[in-house]
Design a protein around this nucleic acid. Sequence first.
DNA 1: AAAGCGTTCAACCGCGGTCTG
DNA 2: ACAGACCGCGGTTGAACGCTT
Length: 212
Amino acid sequence: MGRSPCCEKAQINKGAWTREEDERLVAYIQAHGQGSWRTLPKAAGLLRCGKSCRLRWINYLRPDVKRGNFTVEEDELIIELHSLLGNKWSLIAGRLPGRTDNEIKNYWNTHMRRKLLSRVLKEENIAGGFRYKHQKNPYERKCQELNLDLKICPPFQHQSEPLNREVLCFYCRLGLQKSKKCSCSDDLLHMKNGDGGETYSRELGYCLQGSM
DNA sequence: AAAGCGTTCAACCGCGGTCTG
DNA sequence: ACAGACCGCGGTTGAACGCTT
């Protein structure tokens, strides 16, 4: 009935990976490719479950993983994408080459939330003082305000002409047509969005609908 | 010096959807 | 058709580290 288990749970190592385990995993994937995570640990001589191997490879050992601090541009992009997609870390990571969903999630939870909140509260302060002065928890309130109502549906099919990537601004090329930072002309925006009232994100592969 | 507290981030957990026997 | 494993994802945890007192 069903498949056999991927590994003997009792013989599984947990916790931090050792240098030797890393080397074994990298060497195996370089020689044989990723293939099936289910069979990889045994084939590579690792006492780990496939899930753990996958995580270690994707988040840390993969050669194209970009280490080090996030740039200002990446910061801004994460904020923009999070406002559109919410906690869809894998989708956000897909727009940031070399960054993993786990890394972005951690970065958001440690740095960005605070940064964004302080920015918003500062803007609010400048705009007209504390309208919510009476409320006890401005952080919670502001987080609720930032939660946008967004619907995601399958990709829009009939695009007659390929969009000219050269004339699109950086944010539009990332699928953020309605970004405040978008510098495209009104004509171009009309051409990109068509008549349906939907914003098709070619890069993200979604129709973005609702309030933005 | 060291205790206490806060921050960071790698790794684990649990869930939902998908796949396989 | 169905049971159960796999896969990928977001949420959470806990060890390590840094800072403050």
